[in-house]
């Protein structure tokens, strides 16, 4: 038997490497929800869906830009302005129930897979520019209610604009590996030692509100660092920083919980000028429009963060 040459060894390493990579990508392939994860007896609550739509600030990304599309109804999520990211530019898609250009033909399973698993309608990994990393913690019932609300909106025909992500085809399969770090598949866990309002606030902040996407710093793999939850970090697109949400109340920013509530509810009208720049202006407008009990819950929770 001839001794293996270096060339053969190299070839062997390459074959093994390719096999290993293939196996890793296969293991982390898009994994839709099992059909039995969807409650069979769920009755859609459109009002709850509307509340989640506001808490999530869906319009902030999916609402049309009047500068580019002056005729579009800005109250409908018919597709938002371009979202530049380090990997390319995404165009937030049309979430109205138009069957061809929106989500009209999405089944409850399809919608739940996007929100909870980051899996697209054609069973590919979604890029985490869409914050499924937060929405994964929503309850399935809330996700179904949100879909019901979107389906209740007037359909807008708005042709999709293709994302401009140069390495999309190569990068997409690798998102599964990233998901190993960023997705835990766990539902929000209430803290039984805390009051219901606090737990409601914690859920709204963590899951539909996806506050941590900007307010939690990310590690070198761009995964939010759980150990530094809501501690603030660099601004994703502009100069300056995203502030920490810890120690908000009782410190320099807001003397009392009531101050923080007023800042969310009334913003600059009451002289709270810290919530307008850096994209927070739209978030404040959304918060001002949610149910009062939910806003109080969010304030209860945030005021407790030290």
């Amino acid at each position: 038997m001839p001794r293996p040459s270096w060339l053969r060894i190299l070839l062997g390493v390459c074959v093994l490497g390719a096999f290993g990579l293939g196996a890793a990508l296969w293991v982390t392939r898009p994994e839709p929800l099992a059909a039995n994860k969807l409650p069979a007896d769920h009755v859609d609550d459109v009002e709850n869906g509307r509340e989640l739509f506001l808490v999530g600030g869906c319009l902030s990304c999916h609402g049309p830009d009047p500068a580019q599309n002056p005729q579009a109804d800005t109250a409908l999520p018919s597709g938002g302005k371009p979202l530049p990211t380090p990997v390319g530019t995404f165009f937030p898609p049309n979430l109205t129930p138009d069957p061809e250009t929106g989500i009209g033909d999405w089944s409850p399973e399809t919608f739940a897979n996007a929100m909870l698993r980051g899996v697209s309608a054609n069973s590919e990994h979604l890029f985490p520019a869409f914050p499924y990393t937060s929405y994964q913690h929503m309850t399935v019932e809330d996700v179904l209610d949100l879909r019901a609300y979107l389906m209740s909106l007037p359909a807008v025909r708005q042709a999709p604009r293709g994302d401009s992500v140069p390495l999309s085809a190569i990068a997409r399969p690798f998102i599964g590996l990233w998901n190993l770090l960023a997705l835990d598949g766990k539902n929000f866990e209430p803290d039984p030692t805390r009051p219901a309002s606090w737990n409601r606030g914690a859920y709204l902040v963590e899951a539909p509100g996806h506050c941590g996407e900007c307010h939690t710093p990310r590690d070198i793999f761009l995964v939010p660092e759980r150990s530094r939850y809501l501690e603030g970090g660099p601004h994703p697109s502009e100069a300056g920083k995203v502030p920490s949400l810890r120690g908000l109340v009782g410190g320099r920013a807001y003397a009392t919980s009531e101050d923080l509530y007023d800042a969310f509810k009334y913003g600059e009208m009451f002289g709270y000028d810290g919530l307008s720049s850096g994209g927070m202006g739209q978030v404040q407008a959304n918060l001002a429009s949610i149910n009062d009990s939910d806003l109080r819950a969010i304030v209860d929770y945030l005021a407790s963060l030290k």
């Binding site: 100069a239 600059e268 000028d273 850096g278």
Partner: peptide, 21 residues
């Protein structure tokens, strides 16, 4: 009028001011 005034403060700060630290 106060609501409108607050809105004018906000719309300028959104465009012309750095995110606060």
């Amino acid at each position: 009028a106060l609501a409108k005034l607050g809105q004018t403060c906000k719309s300028c700060h959104e465009k012309y001011r750095k995110p606060s630290n």
